[in-house]
Design a protein around this nucleic acid. Sequence first.
DNA 1: CGCAACGGCAACCATACGGTTGCTGTTTCC
DNA 2: GGAAACAGCAACCGTATGGTTGCCGTTGCG
Lengths: 109, 109
Amino acid sequence: MTEAVAAANPAAVFAALGDPTRLSLLSRLSDGHARSIAALSADTTLTRQAVTKHLHVLQDAGLVASVRVGRESRFAFRPEPVAAARGYLDTVSAQWDDALSRLRAFVEG
Amino acid sequence: MTEAVAAANPAAVFAALGDPTRLSLLSRLSDGHARSIAALSADTTLTRQAVTKHLHVLQDAGLVASVRVGRESRFAFRPEPVAAARGYLDTVSAQWDDALSRLRAFVEG
DNA sequence: CGCAACGGCAACCATACGGTTGCTGTTTCC
DNA sequence: GGAAACAGCAACCGTATGGTTGCCGTTGCG
């Protein structure tokens, strides 16, 4: 395991986003700076190991990528799955809006 | 438990979306038609009870609301949390885009 | 060279999650 | 009135999840 990568499937991405710690990690990384595990663990109450696990979950969902640089491994934000997730929510919203306007047309008609 | 309602917190919403079954239920309900549990269970392989649990999870996240009508309880889609989730992803994307353009400006500068 | 920083791996733990079965309580409708 | 449809409740089960601790391998650096 711990490969998968580039999960196109929306549920997997949402599941990865469905944890406050991971959401916070992702939000910090979305500034474009790659960071080491130690750096990311620094200002949390969690263990380094806990943070590592969360990063792997994010990585499996394709939300983050890691590069080993010397003795540290840097994690960087990857925007694609976020866009995919947004797209999914858009279609759901669109379907809902359609339903609404059809209903309105029916009532007013 | 099983109340909460109207969870503004994004992680909770994402967590609720992070399951294929729930995603499918939500997508079916997003057509605006309220449906009974029996109806929603009809074309799945799952038990009615399993579907019920998923619906409660969606309800706790505010993604769905239920109304008891006679002997059946109808579940209806609620768009607010979806909008909130979209908003959250938007800000993350925006932050990323900002970082990208700053980087580009730096490189080209 | 040798210590300190950075991490990977594995074991372990408690609790949450997804799902099932079985039973009971209301509506509905003939 | 009574069978059938709809649903709620509770117990139970296996596995995933979030977290910890301990230990070992590299890499960096004074």
